[in-house]
């Protein structure tokens, strides 16, 4: 990403407390024009607080929160953003076209109805009441509402939850079009493949701080954990003693092995147990990867911070 592009959203040394709970403890974030930043992290990591601050929904206890160099609580700053929240029950009796017309009215120079509908792929839904739409269609309409104001910065919170594969691909294509026009996107998602498909940079949060920031590949490299499953009569202790093995356990008669490098362990397994059956090797899911990352953050917060910095 071109570092000379202007910053559109910024968190600097932001602290947010809820009573004794520290939701954000020195959060740092910069989003530049035309860039898609994926904000990842386990539940409770502080993603929602970070987004809520940038949307002007809550105030920081300390630090700087800026949208286009201004306070997000100023309506002038928010006239340049589009928002798709994870949970928003829109008025069920309003038709899609009416919802678009209402939302577009908040902006100084919104897109035309036809352009919005085409971009979000909802041209066939305009006359339908919102309540009559499927979950995936409702998400597409919410996406349309987010982009109808011709925003320069889009906040997308878990945009593809409840969408089928086809709808998800179309949404990704629309996001790429917006990025190409110079729009910036702050995306929160639980799908690593979504971040991988779209993001220029990913930012992983844990315990109210950014513990990793970089490209998608850099993130993958950090959480390169594989899972091996098989039916084997080998004793757990034997497998546990192998150097590459992080963890072994039995679950429903199957042996579950967590490893860094799968190949060496698989070779050794097959040698040791000629009757081994139903061998499966999987890259760890995003949730596991994050729990690894965040467990690291728990153990050595200082070292992590240095690396993130």
């Amino acid at each position: 990403m071109n570092d000379s592009n202007p910053v559109v959203a910024r968190l600097a040394a932001v602290v947010k407390r809820y009573g004794s709970l520290i939701a954000l403890g020195g959060a740092e974030l910069q989003l530049r024009r035309g860039e898609l930043l994926a904000l990842l992290g386990p539940n409770g990591a502080g993603k929602t607080s970070a987004i809520s601050l940038l949307l002007g929904l809550i105030r920081a206890d300390a630090g700087t929160v800026e949208l286009f160099g201004r306070d997000p609580q100023a309506i002038e700053a928010r006239r340049h953003i589009g928002v798709m929240l994870q949970h928003a029950e829109l008025p069920p009796t309003l038709r899609v076209g009416e919802l678009l017309r209402l939302t577009a009215s908040y902006y100084p120079a919104p897109r035309g109805l036809a352009e919005t509908a085409e971009l979000a792929g909802i041209g066939d839904l305009l006359k339908r009441p919102y309540a009559r739409l499927s979950g995936g269609q409702q998400r597409r309409v919410q996406f349309a509402l987010a982009l109808c104001g011709r925003p320069e910065l889009l906040f997308l919170d878990e945009p593809t939850v409840g969408m089928d594969i086809d709808a998800r691909q179309k949404l990704w294509a629309a996001i790429r079009r917006l990025l190409a026009e110079g729009c910036s996107v702050l995306l929160t998602t639980h799908y690593l493949e979504e971040a991988e498909a779209l993001a220029d940079r990913v930012c992983v949060m844990a315990h109210g701080r950014m513990i990793h920031e970089g490209t998608v590949d850099a993130l993958r490299a950090r959480v390169a954990i594989k899972r091996i499953r098989c039916l084997s009569t080998l004793p757990l202790d034997t497998v546990r003693s192998w150097p590459e093995v992080c963890e072994v356990r039995h679950e429903q008669q199957r042996m579950h092995i967590t490893v860094g490098e799968a190949e060496a362990v698989v070779r050794r397994l097959l040698d040791a147990d000629p009757h081994l059956r139903e061998l499966e090797v999987q890259r760890a899911g995003l949730a596991e990867a994050f729990s690894e990352l965040t467990r690291d953050a728990d153990i050595a917060p200082d070292a992590q911070q240095r690396e993130a910095a």
Binding site: L55, G56, L57, I75, R78, R79, I81, V83, L85, Q86, H87, A88, E89, L90, P91, T103, Y106, Y107, G149, F155
Partner: peptide, 18 residues
């Protein structure tokens, strides 16, 4: 209902005139 369902939050985030 709108506080519960997130509509109020969305409207507060959008540039709806106060």
């Amino acid at each position: 209902i709108e506080r519960d369902g997130g509509l109020l939050t969305l409207k507060r985030a959008l540039p709806m005139p106060p």
